[in-house]
Amino acid sequence: MKLDGKVALVTGGGQGLGEGIAKKLAEAGCNIAVADINKENAEKVTEDIRAMGRKAIAVEVDVTDWDQVQNMVKETDDKLGGLDIAVNNAGVISIKSVEELTEADWDHVLNVNAKGVFLCAKAEIPYLKKQEWGRIINTASSAGKSGFPDLAHYSASKFAVIGFTNALAKELGKTKITVNAICPGIIGTQMWYGDKGLAAEWKGEDETMEQSWQRNQETLIPQGEAQTPEDMGDLAVYFATAPHVTGQAVAVDGGMTL
């Protein structure tokens, strides 16, 4: 199945996984709405996509705000002529033990990662039904299949995304709208390799950031090397072109969750 002329909306598309997914979908023929809480980041990605010969718009959105989410989807429809593929990717992380977690910490991660996916899907479904064809692709995590210490709140949010994905796929089973989830493993984006990322938080006393990054790859991933945003984009393109794959949460993690 070709994706030429399809319209894809990618939340959290201004950097990291979202950027990789948006660009892979553009390579496959899609016009892209790049949605992000940081409008400047979104605009930079749209410039790259336009240079590929595709239409692209940048949309500023807080995915925890229902009014903003509705406006995001409407703007995509108005400016790009429809909505065919919705990638609900926006996410956040923090690193604390359950004892250290505050209620605000919990609420922030769950609101963006789980509530945000729900609100986006709720707003997107009427537009996809209007097309009589659609793809919803949610970003979960390997941490949504197996819990990690100091990431109980993050793991809970991603387990929620996987359950939501499975249930929604069954609700929409007769509509030609498929619903699937991407479960990334270890990727060198801000979540893992930023100043406050997992590699920084989990490094030993005598380790540099780079040494921690390498050790985490070698000890946690059977393949021994990190994945890339482009890997996630490849799976998104597959989900977008696979008519009978729905309700799945597929890990791209080098074997971490075998």
Rank of each mutant, 00 (worst) to 15 (best):
E205I: 01
W202S: 10
G224V: 05
E225F: 15
G134Y: 11
V245D: 13
G254M: 06
R215M: 03
P184G: 08
Q214V: 07
T208H: 02
E205R: 00
G173H: 10
R215E: 02
F239H: 05
W202K: 06
Y154Q: 05
P243W: 13
G224K: 05
V250W: 08
A167D: 03
W133L: 02
L198S: 12
G188M: 07
T139L: 15
A152T: 06
D150F: 15
E207P: 00
L128N: 08
L151R: 04
I186M: 02
A199Q: 04
T246H: 13
F159A: 07
T208A: 04
G144F: 14
T189S: 14
Y154P: 00
D231F: 05
G224N: 09
Q131V: 02
L172T: 09
L128E: 08
A200Y: 09
T165A: 13
Y127S: 08
W202M: 14
G134T: 08
A200V: 01
V245G: 06
V252E: 08
L168G: 04
C183D: 10
E201L: 06
K176C: 12
E171I: 04
I177K: 03
K176L: 14
A123S: 10
G144M: 11
Q131T: 02
T139Q: 12
I137K: 11
I136S: 14
L220N: 14
L168M: 13
T241G: 11
A240G: 02
Y238E: 08
I186N: 01
I187E: 00
A167N: 02
S212C: 07
M191W: 09
E218F: 01
I187G: 02
V161S: 08
D195P: 01
Q227K: 03
P126H: 13
G188Y: 06
F239T: 00
A199D: 06
T178S: 15
A169K: 01
R215W: 10
N138P: 00
G134W: 10
S155L: 05
C183W: 12
Q214F: 03
K145F: 11
M232A: 13
A167M: 01
F148M: 12
C183H: 10
T241D: 09
E201F: 11
A143I: 00
T178V: 10
E225R: 08
H153C: 09
A199G: 06
A200P: 01
P149C: 04
T228D: 09
A200I: 00
G233Q: 07
Q190R: 14
